[in-house]
């Protein structure tokens, strides 16, 4: 870090509530990462190099050109890091589905904090916790006092916590998507603030099976890949599989479909859609063949986990954001 060039853009990476796959995607750039590294100075990247919070605190406000933050915001520590990095960065980029829309961790918004704690620390058959001890935020021992982050009630995407300039979608973003996004950011003209740095067309546009999609696929049952031999050429929706492709932003080059698995929606909606799950539901529901209510119920009951299917990556960023905790009237969350 001693050979920092004053005119090279300074870049930071940080990791909140996520699996780490997005950082992996950065590493997956392979040789291409060298080109990136040649053009920028990495000033903060805890997963790869030894940095401390105080290193960031000591930087001047706005001194980081761009911070790529992945992961949703669940704890008080993540929230405070997000605020810190925001103030130090000219551009804050939400990297990956969790940061963009809430991601898989966001499905925890179907539960409240208390029941999650019970589920994890008290109820598992492999857990012995007779006193029902739950994680604490303060701990005192031997004269030492430790402060631990608060586990918050709700998982939030980054833009519900701080102002976000750009988004890179995907769970994780493909190396190609990441590289293209970085090149756009390094370019001379920045896109409009709030842009998701990926094509703004749905996945069918780049799907190799597009031509096999019928004009009227009809559903009498929704199937899951393990229940059938999936035809490797034919449109997956036409085979009765729940493919989120029509309602999902493209840019991944239909990787899952090429692997004979339906799109699960990780690139999120296009810029014109506020609620990906509602949109894809509205589309699919009209393709159920029967007009009889009981039969429609039966067809829909073949979707075992509707929220996990239609909002797999986007519940916290959707219009509803979360399940209302029992008996609690939800205070309005800040809108994006």
């Amino acid at each position: 870090m001693s050979d920092r060039s004053p005119d090279k853009p300074k870049v930071a990476f940080y990791w909140c509530a996520s699996c780490g796959g997005c950082e992996e995607a950065v590493v997956d750039l392979a040789e291409a990462i060298l080109d990136v590294v040649a053009k920028v100075d990495i000033v903060f990247w805890p997963v790869a190099m030894d940095f401390k919070r105080k290193d960031v605190e000591s930087m001047a406000d706005g001194s980081i050109t761009a911070t790529f933050l992945n992961g949703a915001i669940r704890t008080s520590e993540q929230e405070s890091m997000a605020q810190l990095l925001r103030s130090k960065s000219q551009l804050l980029v939400a990297l990956g589905a969790c940061s963009h829309l809430g991601g898989i961790p966001g499905l925890a918004n179907l539960f409240d904090r208390a029941s999650l704690m019970q589920e994890v620390y008290v109820q598992p058959p492999s857990t012995i916790n007779a006193e029902g001890t739950l994680p604490q935020t303060h701990y005192q021992d031997n004269g030492y006092s430790v402060e631990l982050p608060v586990f918050q009630e709700t998982v939030r995407p980054l833009d519900q916590v701080v102002d976000v300039d750009y988004y890179i979608p995907g769970c994780p973003p493909t190396p190609k998507t990441f590289l293209a996004a970085v090149q756009i950011l390094l370019g001379s003209e920045l896109p409009v603030k709030g842009t998701v740095l990926a094509p703004d067309c749905a996945l069918c546009d780049e799907c190799p099976r597009k031509d096999t999609k019928p004009e009227k696929p009809v559903f009498n049952e929704f199937k899951r890949p393990q229940q059938m031999l999936v035809d490797e050429q034919k449109c997956l929706l036409a085979q009765g599989l729940l493919c989120m492709g029509p309602g999902t932003r493209s840019g991944c080059e239909a990787l899952c479909v090429r692997g004979n698995m339906p799109c699960s929606g990780c690139y999120g909606p296009t810029s014109r859609v506020r609620d990906q799950g509602a949109k894809i539901l509205s589309c699919l529901a009209s393709l159920v063949e029967s007009k009889d209510e009981t039969e429609i119920d039966r067809v829909l009951s073949t979707i075992p986990d509707p929220v996990g299917t239609f909002y797999r990556y986007g519940l916290p960023g959707s219009l509803l954001q979360r399940k209302r905790p029992d008996g609690v009237r939800q205070a309005p969350l800040p809108s994006r």
Binding site: C201, D205, T270
Partner: peptide, 23 residues
């Protein structure tokens, strides 16, 4: 249709009660 943005997924075609949409 927003021609640039349409992915050609054909979802709309059978929905139209007036047969106004074509692929």
């Amino acid at each position: 249709i927003l021609e640039e943005e349409c992915s050609g997924c054909k979802s709309c075609i059978s929905l139209c009660p007036y047969q106004a949409i074509a692929f």
